[in-house]
Simulated scan of single mutants.
Amino acid sequence: MADSQTRTLISRAQLSRPLARRIYWTALVVTIVVFAVFFLFPLYWVASSGLKSAAEVEQIPQTLIPHTWEWGNYATAWSNYDLGRLIFNTAYYAFGALVLQLIFDVAAAYALSKLRPVLGNAVLFLMLGTLMIPATVLVIPNYLTAVNVPLLHWSLINSPLAIWLPSVANGFNIFLLKRFFDSIPEELMAAAAIDGAGPLRALRSIVLPMSRPILAVVSIFAMVAVWKDVLWPLLVITDTSKMTINVGLLNLTGDGIPMNVEMASLTVAAIPTIIFFLIFQRNIMSGLTAGSLKG
C-alpha cells in the first residue's frame, strides 16, 4: 500500500535487494559528490587564491593548496579597499528595495487576487509580458528617466531611489504572490467580511500571516537581485562613497592591485550572500511550492 501511494524512482521492493541497494547508494553518493565539487570548487579556488602570494597566484600550473598561507591578504583587502563600506551600501540598497517591493507588490497581488478589479486579468497579462523583455533593452529608457524624472524634473543619480524604484515593479514577484493568494480559501475571506473586516483588515489579519513562506521567497529574490546587479548601479551610482560592492570591486580591477588581494576581496564580497543562502535555503522551495495546491 505504501508503494502505491509514494512515487519514487526505484521501488522499495527493488531496494530490498542487496545488489540493487548498493548500486543505488553508490550512484547517489557519486552524483552528490560530483555536483558538490563542480559547485564548490570555484568558491574554494577564489578563497584559497586569497591566501597565496602574488607570484603563486599567477604561476602556471595553479596550485590547489597554498604553499604559504598569507592571511594578511584579507586584512589588507578589508582595510585598504574599504570593503565594509561597500558591503554596507549594498545591504542598504537591498533592504530598501525589499521593503518597497513587499509594500507595493503585495498590494498589487492582493488586489488582483482578492479584490479582482475591472480588467485585472489584462493588467496581470501585461505585467507578465514585461518578463519577456530583456533587461538590457530597458537600461537606456530607465537611465533617461533617472537622469530627469518626467514632470518632476528630478535627478536620481547617486540617490538610493535610483536603485529602489526600478526594482519595485517586478512582474514575477507579483505573479508569485498572486498565485499564493489565490490558494487561500475564499471561505476565510467571506468569514472575515461577515465579521466586519474590510479589505485592509483581511490582508493584515488573514492573508499576510498565512503568506509567510511566499513572502520569504520574494524577500530572498529582492535581496539577491540588488546584491548581484552590476550594470544598473554602475550607471546610476557614480559617487565612490555610495557604490555597491560589485561596482567597487569592478573599479579596483584597474588599479593594479595584486591578484591575491583581489581574490581575497572577492571572497569577502561573497561571504554575505553565502551566509544569507545558508540561512534561508529552505524558504525557497517551501515558498515556491506552498501555493501549488488549492485548499
Rank of each mutant, 00 (worst) to 15 (best):
L215D: 00
F35R: 08
G196R: 10
R179Q: 14
L235I: 15
F104E: 01
G129A: 04
F38M: 13
N148A: 02
A225P: 01
V123A: 15
W154D: 09
A193Y: 06
V149H: 06
T26K: 01
S159E: 11
F38E: 05
S48Y: 01
M223Q: 00
F125S: 12
A193V: 07
A47G: 12
K242E: 07
G291S: 10
W71N: 05
E58G: 08
N283D: 09
D105R: 00
A192M: 08
L288P: 10
S265E: 04
A97S: 15
S205Q: 12
F181L: 06
L86F: 05
R7G: 09
A122S: 12
T253V: 07
N246K: 13
V57K: 05
D3A: 11
L208D: 03
V99P: 04
L152Q: 06
G196K: 04
A20T: 09
E56G: 04
V268P: 00
L177G: 04
Q14R: 14
G295V: 12
T273I: 12
M223A: 10
E56T: 00
R282Y: 01
L43S: 10
W227C: 10
I274W: 05
S205R: 15
W154N: 14
V236P: 05
S167I: 02
Q5P: 00
E262F: 13
A97D: 03
I163L: 03
G295D: 13
D105P: 06
A54S: 11
L100A: 14
M127D: 12
G50L: 05
K178Y: 00
A2C: 06
P160S: 13
A108W: 02
P272V: 04
I133W: 04
A97N: 10
A169F: 04
S49L: 12
Q281H: 08
L165I: 15
F172G: 03
F180M: 11
L98A: 08
M132I: 02
G256P: 14
N260M: 05
A225E: 10
F181T: 11
P141S: 13
R212C: 00
N260T: 06
V33K: 06
I284F: 15
T145K: 01
A20V: 13
K242M: 13
L112V: 03
W227K: 15
I184P: 01
R85G: 15
T145R: 03
L177R: 10
A290Y: 00
L235R: 05
A2H: 06
L131Y: 00
V247N: 06
I157K: 09
L200D: 04
D82Q: 11
V226D: 07
T136D: 12
V224I: 15
A55F: 04
G254L: 08
L83M: 14
G256Q: 02
A197V: 01
I206T: 12
A54P: 04
E187W: 01
L98I: 04
P166M: 07
Y143C: 12
T130H: 07
M259V: 13
N80G: 08
I220E: 10
T136S: 11
T76N: 07
N80H: 09
Y143S: 12
S113V: 09
V147H: 07
M132N: 05
P209A: 09
P258V: 07
S79L: 02
L252W: 05
A197H: 04
A54T: 14
